[in-house]
């Protein structure tokens, strides 16, 4: 089971339901209807519901500096588009689609207006994570999580941190579309068809992108760690 399905918000969001089993409207449908009726508190509920999921997604897609702005942009777009939401797709697919579009637009703007790039860090510091716009070197520190000094924790924890940093680096080396695809599937649990909807592409493209992304990540991990060390 994917992590976000396990966590607290799963009580509020069912995956596809227009109606729950007993015939009552599903929670997300109710939430959407309340939003469409102009209930501001319902919209704030929606923000609080999706913010914990969107923030890691946007952080990994656009970097920690831009994630908050993109999150705001995502919810503003959602607020504008909510009156037209007909429930053709599930609410989470719809929201993630908006977030992906917002990120894509931001990436296009960034490409059209190149910024001064931050010079790359030496290899030793890179893993510490100071992502500047892209995901290279985005570690937990840059995501705002402070961990204890590794000298005081068991070896397994150190290993896990190393693995996470490597994974984040590998993800950062992927293109935006491959990164989004692998995150949407492996981290957020979307099905291929849902990802195709979010990414505006055919299911076959999702399939090949996902394989390519995994193969690339595998290459990075295998280069850095013996196979037995990254088996969970």
């Amino acid at each position: 089971m994917h992590w976000w399905r396990r966590t607290a918000t799963s009580t509020a969001i069912a995956r596809k339901p227009e109606e729950a089993g007993d015939g009552a409207l599903a929670p997300d449908t109710l939430l959407v209807r309340r939003c469409q009726a102009g209930d501001r508190s319902a919209f704030e509920e929606l923000v609080l519901l999706y913010q914990p999921r969107l923030m890691p997604y946007l952080t990994r897609l656009a970097g920690p500096e831009m994630a908050e702005d993109l999150l705001q942009e995502t919810f503003l777009r959602a607020w504008r588009a909510l009156p037209a939401f007909r429930g053709d797709s599930s609410l989470d697919t719809w929201i993630f689609r908006i977030a992906t579009n917002a990120t894509r637009d931001w990436v296009r703007r960034r490409r059209a207006r190149p910024e001064v790039l931050v010079p790359p860090l030496p290899a030793g510091e890179e893993a510490e994570g100071t992502g500047a716009g892209n995901m290279d070197g985005v570690g937990l520190d840059s995501l705002g999580v402070r961990e204890r000094d590794p000298r005081g924790v068991p070896e397994e924890a150190v290993h896990q941190r190393e693995l996470r940093d490597l994974l984040e680096r590998a993800l950062g080396n992927l293109s935006e579309v491959h990164r989004a695809t692998v995150l949407l599937h492996d981290l957020f649990g979307f099905r291929y068809e849902e990802i195709a909807t979010i990414m505006h592409c055919p299911v076959g493209t999702v399939k090949s992108r996902l394989f390519y992304a995994r193969a690339t990540i595998r290459q990075v991990l295998e280069k850095s760690l013996p196979a037995k060390e990254w088996i969970r």
């Binding site: 994917h2 992590w3 976000w4 966590t7 609080l48 913010q51 914990p52 923030m55 890691p56 908050e68 937990l140 995501l143 705002g144 999580v145 402070r146 693995l163 996470r164 994974l167 984040e168 993800l171 692998v182 995150l183 492996d186 981290l187 995994r214 990540i217 595998r218 991990l221 196979a227 990254w230 088996i231 969970r232």
Partner: peptide, 24 residues
Amino acid sequence: RVRSAVNGLGDSDAALRLARRAEA
């Protein structure tokens, strides 16, 4: 294994969410 490893990032994200409650 790759799929599981990426999926495992969610655990760190859970910690991240706790750290970012004020940010929310």
